[in-house]
């Protein structure tokens, strides 16, 4: 995780946000499609930094700290690689000062 000039680590940054984590993932990623992707826009563009490249050329993601913004599926240029819906009602991100 990268630190910004203010000295706040990304983990500390995300710890300022409340998440009520649902039991099921609301994001799914098609490993085969992602393996063929050369651009990997989701990895850098996701403001919650949920996507990571693995050593074997795959994509790892976690859904627990998702802002539910939609950036990942919007910037993805591979049809069907990222399936995205809302978390179960009452779960997911809870902004207090949005």
């Amino acid at each position: 995780m990268t630190a910004d000039p203010a000295g706040v680590s990304f983990g500390e940054r995300m710890a300022t946000v409340e998440f009520r984590v649902a039991g099921n993932a609301h994001i799914t990623v098609d490993a085969d499609v992602c393996a063929s992707c050369t651009t990997r826009e989701c990895v850098t563009a996701c403001p919650a930094n949920l996507f990571a490249e693995t050593a074997d050329g795959g994509i790892l993601f976690n859904y627990e700290q998702c802002f539910e913004c939609g950036t990942c599926y919007m910037v993805c240029n591979k049809e069907g690689a990222i399936s995205w819906s809302y978390p179960q009602g009452g779960y997911g991100v809870v902004f207090r000062r949005g």
């Binding site: 300022t16 403001p47 802002f67 913004c69 950036t71 000062r97």
Partner: peptide, 9 residues
């Protein structure tokens, strides 16, 4: 000090 980080489309 950072109180809350957020993002939205």
């Amino acid at each position: 000090t950072l109180r809350e980080y957020s993002a939205h489309l």
